[in-house]
Amino acid sequence: MPGPTPPPGEDWRTPWKGRVDAADGEAGWRWHQVVQPWSDAPGGSAAAGVALLGLASDEGVRRNQGRAGAAEGPLALRRALASLPAASAQPLIDAGTVPCLDGDLEAAQSRYAERAARLLDQGHLVIGLGGGHEIAWASYQGLASLLQSGRARRLAIVNFDAHFDLRRDVQATSGTPFLQALEHARAHGWDAHYRVLGVSRAANTRALFDTARSLGVQWTLDEQMTLLHLEALRAELAQWLEGFDAVYLTVCLDVLPAATAPGVSAPAARGVAIEVIEPLVQTVAGCGRLRLADVAELNPRLDIDQRTARTAARLVWQVAQAHCGARSP
């Protein structure tokens, strides 16, 4: 397993390098020129903005019998983000990366959740950089502080994914996070609803569909997600989101076609085109109630020409833009 990515400090800027258009002044700034390290000290944080937080883990993928390498995802994703345009005035914060050490996934998820909760308390939108989709259980645990305190009463979990990730297993994996989240919410009497867009019939067993039905999960099949259906899907999704005061958005990159996202543990035989995924992601991110988002399953070892990293970076950038646009007066 790769060594841990350093937290914000003297080396935090390592991946933040890219093109500089000095003649354009502030209008030509890119993310690597505006990003700042996070400080958890009183009075040490920037105004509320977008905070990037990595989880360098593929332990959940390994436990789920997948292909290792996603632990390198947060670093590759930051490098792909570095030269994207800084089109928003909202502060951009790098809150570091939590490593999974010695296979102790549960400890890493807890550390990530604690840091995410502190960032949420400061008013930031947290965007998680995976790592395997075990990041989702960590993200949910970070959001749980809002539900526990009553600052959020109804939580929508929106997952773009070829898989339900509702597996029952003897230990947490990249395939269990949403079952963990739903069972945790129910045990605490919290109102959480789970919706999956891009589900593949060929990638989920009958047992997983049965589990989804028993939990009241809503889903849309990949074959139903085409440009022909896009506007209807977008309108219906926006209407559904109105019933919630907190939204968690998560994107598993294996929802995309293998040609677009080859660098994942389980490349899609079909997938959903980026032309459909992107506007739907923007709809969720721009709803005005997004609290946390993450992108999962980026595996640089399996990527081709940085296709998956660049696509993931574009989606992260779109999430930040849509969220900041919704917050602007």
Rank of each mutant, 00 (worst) to 15 (best):
M1V: 13
G3M: 12
P6H: 10
E10P: 13
W12E: 06
G18K: 11
D24C: 15
G25H: 03
A27P: 01
W29F: 11
W31C: 14
Q33A: 08
D40Y: 03
S45P: 04
V61I: 15
G69R: 01
G69D: 02
R78E: 01
S83D: 11
S83R: 04
P85C: 13
P85D: 07
A86R: 01
L92C: 15
I93Q: 02
C100M: 01
S110E: 10
R111A: 03
L120W: 00
G123A: 14
G123M: 11
L125D: 00
G128S: 01
I135G: 08
G150D: 09
L155N: 02
A162M: 03
H163M: 11
L166R: 07
T173C: 03
T173Y: 00
L179N: 00
E183Y: 13
E183G: 08
A185D: 04
H188A: 05
V199D: 00
R206I: 12
F209I: 07
R213F: 05
T220R: 13
L230T: 02
L230Q: 03
L233Y: 03
R234M: 09
R234I: 11
Q239V: 14
F244K: 02
V251K: 01
A268K: 08
I277E: 11
L280C: 15
G288N: 02
R289D: 07
N299T: 02
R314A: 15
L315M: 10
W317H: 15
A326V: 11
A326M: 11
A326T: 13
P329T: 10
P329G: 09
